[in-house]
Design a protein around this nucleic acid. Structure first.
Lengths: 117, 117
DNA sequence: ATTATTAATCGTAATATTGCAATGAAACAA
DNA sequence: TTGTTTCATTGCAATATTACGATTAATAAT
């Protein structure tokens, strides 16, 4: 009667390649419409966003703050303290790096299939 | 004493645009390394994959089956029954559509910022 | 008919994510 | 100092995700 310790509800990252985990990490952060909306707003606005996000997106301030934290953790955005305000903007260098990783994944060529499909 | 019914642990998709929800849906499915690995394998192999996936990826058969289901639900892969086996392959048409949506999001131009960042 | 193979489904447990009220911290304004 | 603004953090509840054992369903092989 073996005692098996199995982690569940948790991605087994150790059985995948660095590349696969990297892609999944980036994709995961885009996997919520609020974070997509935040990033789109940061791109749209000509300057850094200082607090507009809570009025722009109809979510409570702690919720927005949490999403910003995740984007910052991945390095996709930067935050600058300006008095009582914090200004956020895209980290262009890291965004480009992320883009290269995602493009390589999404742009895989579809070979001619033989048979079933 | 107001009775507030608040949904939690659930994305409030209704406050976002179709586009934002669409991007998030696609990204979400790539947000797990197993699904990334499955897709990469489907691209790599010259023909349809019939059951190799469980030996290729070190996860239990029901787990792989579940991931395949999600990929199929989004239309990114197709499954053909072949006797006792099921052959999977990329749905190239839908993959291209997805790519266009994701590219438009990822390829946003970074404007020159004034000031803080 | 019986058995083997393959993959889907069900049930369940562990963990993660989402969201917000309440609170805290830091800078500014009076 | 005392308030005000702005954002982060904490704590918690609801829901989602991940994983797998057990089972089922369908076909193939004997």
């Amino acid at each position: 009667m073996k005692q098996l310790i199995v982690k569940m509800g948790l991605a087994k990252t150790e059985i995948f390649t660095e590349d696969q985990n990297q892609i999944a990490l980036f994709a995961k952060v885009f996997g919520h419409p609020a974070r997509v909306a935040i990033l789109q707003h940061l791109f749209k606005i000509d300057t850094c966003v200082c607090g507009d996000l809570v009025t722009e997106i109809k979510l409570a301030q702690p919720t927005i703050s949490q999403h910003l934290k995740e984007l910052k953790l991945l390095g996709l955005i930067k935050g600058n303290v300006e008095g009582t305000r914090v200004c956020y903007c895209i980290d262009s260098e890291n965004w480009t790096t992320m883009k290269e990783v995602m493009f390589q994944f999404l742009n895989q060529d579809i070979l001619e299939k033989q048979g079933c499909c």
